[in-house]
Structure formats: C-alpha cells, structure tokens
C-alpha cells in the first residue's frame, strides 16, 4: 500500500521501487502497457490530427491565444505535445518519464495555467484520442479497452501535475512565511542600560522565538537593565503570543533585566482580558512616554544612594 507521504515525496528522486508502487497504485499493469505500446504506430498517425484539434480548441479562448501569440511558440508546444504522446504510448515509464512529467507540471504552474484549465484541457485531449481510437482500432471493445488503459496513465499524469502545483504553492507559502518571520525586530538602545524594542506585525511562534533570542542576546551585549517592549504595531494577540511575551519577560528577568510593555491597543487589551492574562504580570504602561518614565524610575532606584 502506498502511503500519502510516499505520494507526496519528490517524484524526481523516485527510486525504481517507488515508481513501481506508483504504477501499481494506479493499477497500471503489464497488460495496459503492452496494449498501449501495441498502438504506437497507429497513434503516430493520428497524433498530429489530435494535437491540431486540441490547439484549435484551446486557441478559441482569449487567454490561451495570448499565451501562444507567436507562431514559433505554438510550433514548439505542438512538437512538445507530439513528443509527449510518443512517450505516453512508448510503454516505458521510468524515472526519466516521471521527471519529464514533473517538469511539464512546473511549466504549467509558472505559466499560470491552473488545475481546472489543465484538467479541462486534458479531458478534451483524451476525448479526441478516444474518438480516433474508435475509428482506427479494429473493434469498439478493443478501442474501449485501449482507452481505459490510457486513462490510467493519464490520471497518473494528472496526479503528478497536481502534485507539482501543490509543491510549488507550498514553496511560495514557505518563502513568504520565512520572509515574514525574518522581518527584523530592531533592538534599540535609548541610553546606557535601556533598550527599546518596537514590535511590528504578527508574532507567530517562530518569530516570537527569534525575537526572544535576539532580545536576550542584546541584554547581554548591551548590558541592559530595563527593556521597553512597545507593541503598538502588533495587531492581534492570542494566548500563544501573550505567553511568548511573558516567557520573554521572565527570561529577561533571569538575566537581570526588567521589562515593561507599552502600546497595548484597545482591541489587544480586550483580547488579553478575554484570555485571562494578568495585566500586572505584563507590567504594562499606556504609552511609550510613561513606559520610559517607569524605566527611568527602575534604573535610578538601582543606581542612587
């Protein structure tokens, strides 16, 4: 049995055993492969006609017409299509075949052809092939069997293409998340011993963790005694974020620095109350000015006398 994880793994790096599993998962048997291979010469005859009809159909849509505006592009794509059909009916489904399918999927993804368009076009294509088979192959039953075998392969193709779409999307999302979390949170030294940290944006756990580490290291390197965390720029605080803030403050305290939080907006305040966060533990002050006043008070209390 094939697990979801195996299906999700990179097709390009598929081992022979994995490819075998994938083929058997799609119930593609030797009989199918033989059947398809047996019409290789016939399909060679009709592939041009099918491809012509396919592009006539696609080009009747404005978007596609734009995409294949130049004659040379269209010719190149048609040649690619013919080559694809040759591979499909060649009966060899090895690593190279899978890598090629993945590459085509990527091209579609980059060109902005969504899954709906892709599968719709594929269905049209298979229909045309089916009609040709019905005409050219001995009996309707044989043609139907042939088409069934082709369908298995076509669906495997579509699965590979969809996989590529998903992977591409995941890569984009990951990149964006990384970008977000790498949004630097500057640690500013206002004066000797006093650090200001303006937190802006969303604090997810990844970002909160890196903020905590950056802060703790700054405490050490800048010899800070008081931290002012200004969260005016934080739009939403959930229990996880509140917890991260508390943890950061506690860790800072262990290193000998006091923390003050300023700039809690009304919505954030409401959210914190709802979660049940104790305001005194956060050591909050309404605005930055009062936060600084408190910071001065703490610092002078330790310095004087």
């Amino acid at each position: 049995m094939l697990t979801a994880q195996q299906l999700n793994s990179d097709f390009e790096s598929k081992t022979e055993g994995e490819i075998k599993k994938l083929l058997s998962w799609s119930a593609i048997e030797d009989a199918d492969v033989e059947r398809i291979a047996s019409i290789a010469s016939v399909s060679e005859d009709f592939s041009d006609a099918v491809i012509q009809k396919f592009y006539d159909h696609i080009l009747s849509f404005e978007e596609a017409a734009d995409m294949f505006a130049s004659e040379s592009t269209l010719e190149r794509v048609k040649r690619g299509q013919k080559e694809y059909f040759r591979q499909l009916t060649a009966g060899v489904y090895d690593q190279k075949y899978f890598a090629e399918r993945k590459r085509i999927g990527q091209i579609h993804e980059t060109a902005g052809i969504g899954p709906a368009l892709y599968i719709g076009a594929y269905a049209f294509y298979l229909n045309q092939v089916g009609l040709e088979l019905l005409e050219r192959v001995g009996s309707p039953e044989e043609a139907f069997r042939l088409h069934l075998s082709l369908l298995k392969l076509a669906h495997l193709d579509m699965a590979l293409a969809l996989q590529t779409y998903v992977e591409a999307r995941e890569t984009t999302i990951e990149a964006q998340q990384r970008e977000m979390s790498e949004l630097p949170t500057p640690v500013l030294q206002v004066k000797a011993g006093l650090l200001l940290v303006p937190v802006v944006g969303t604090l997810d756990s990844h970002r909160a963790r890196s903020l905590t580490i950056a802060l703790l290291e700054s405490i050490q390197s800048m010899r800070a005694r008081v931290l002012v965390l200004d969260i005016t720029g934080v739009s939403a605080v959930d229990s996880m974020v509140a917890n991260h803030l508390l943890q950061t403050m506690t860790a800072a305290r262990l290193m000998g620095a006091h923390s003050i939080i300023t700039g809690i907006s009304p919505t954030v305040a409401e959210a914190l109350v709802k979660i049940g966060v104790d305001a005194t533990s956060l050591n909050t002050f309404g605005d930055l000015e009062r936060g600084f006043e408190e910071a001065e008070r703490i610092m002078s209390a330790h310095r004087e006398e």
């Binding site: 703790l216 405490i219 943890q247 506690t250 860790a251 800072a252 262990l254």
Partner: peptide
C-alpha cells in the same frame, strides 16, 4: 545567566 540558559529555564517553567 546566559541567554539560552534563561530561555530554556523559562521553557521548563523554572524561575528564581
């Protein structure tokens, strides 16, 4: 107390 020591203490719920 080093930064990473402080952090792991907090994560373990240890306070002084």
């Amino acid at each position: 107390i080093q930064p990473d020591v402080a952090l792991s203490m907090v994560l373990l719920g240890l306070t002084l």
